[in-house]
Write a protein that binds this DNA or RNA. Sequence first.
DNA 1: GCTTGCCTGTTAAAATTTAACACTTGCTAC
DNA 2: GTAGCAAGTGTTAAATTTTAACAGGCAAGC
Lengths: 151, 151
Amino acid sequence: MTNCDHTLCKTSALKEAERVCEQLGARFTDQRRNVFEILWQSHKAMTAADIMNEMTNKQPPITYRALEFLKKSGLIHHVTSLNAYVGCIYAKDPNHIGQLLICTNCRDINEIEPKNAVSELIKAAKNQDFTPSLTHIEMLGICKTCNNATS
Amino acid sequence: MTNCDHTLCKTSALKEAERVCEQLGARFTDQRRNVFEILWQSHKAMTAADIMNEMTNKQPPITYRALEFLKKSGLIHHVTSLNAYVGCIYAKDPNHIGQLLICTNCRDINEIEPKNAVSELIKAAKNQDFTPSLTHIEMLGICKTCNNATS
DNA sequence: GCTTGCCTGTTAAAATTTAACACTTGCTAC
DNA sequence: GTAGCAAGTGTTAAATTTTAACAGGCAAGC
Ligand SMILES: [Zn+2]
Ligand SMILES: [Zn+2]
Ligand SMILES: [Zn+2]
Ligand SMILES: [Zn+2]
């Protein structure tokens, strides 16, 4: 997501977050907004500690509770291979499966949407009589920008 | 992997581990073997603590070092969404991408091999000029056995 | 105004992972 | 065979990450 109009990107994410909370009958409180805005400063993965350091109220439970809420609400993704977090750009679609291209050099994350890969996986799961509930797809590697920089 | 002849399964995994170490010019030491055999008692995900509890030498660094080695050597997978580990059944192929069906009820893991899903992902990555190095594909859900049990 | 449920603030503690460093072991070169 | 080296271990402790527990506050509905 290096080529986004990020001001716009962030604004619309905030709008979407408010809408989702409204719909869930939950509140988009100061703490939750604080975490959300910090994450949306960029598309880079941030650990809980990274986020906590930038928060107004820096106490661990505050941070973890907000992260937990945002994750459950589908507003952010937990990047399991880095144990970090990133804002979700498909929050509109609560059933989408996050497919993350994660740059190990700059930690920038590009969330893509190839339905094909997912449908192949679901097909394979069905073959094994496996009923999926939550899927993580994460590719670690080097992004376009970092690739160009080193060459 | 509920339908495997597990004695056989485990024996051949051990053979393979010895071969891989040989080839890497590394040693399959007592500690590494200890961790490996504990993991291969079943196809269930085990946390570092689970494993440590069953080891002869129960000191954290011993456990973590062995896990690190086995992971780097491609003999086990780190199951990032559970922060746990499981033996790899495709260790012969050092370049394969682990695709794990993880039962959240019994923690049993079925490693599958649909090349289609992977090739779709790689295609998508290429479209973004992203150079992948390590990919995690993990589906959490309910396995066949557990499904039948509850119905 | 009072209840009820959600959310916060605060203090600790538990769980997980890593650093540092001295020591041992197996191998190779002399 | 023995000196030197790299790989692996043992041990102590600390850093990092995550969670428990509980008291208090705030907003919406009766
Ligand atoms: Zn997403
Ligand atoms: Zn990058
Ligand atoms: Zn594997
Ligand atoms: Zn199961």
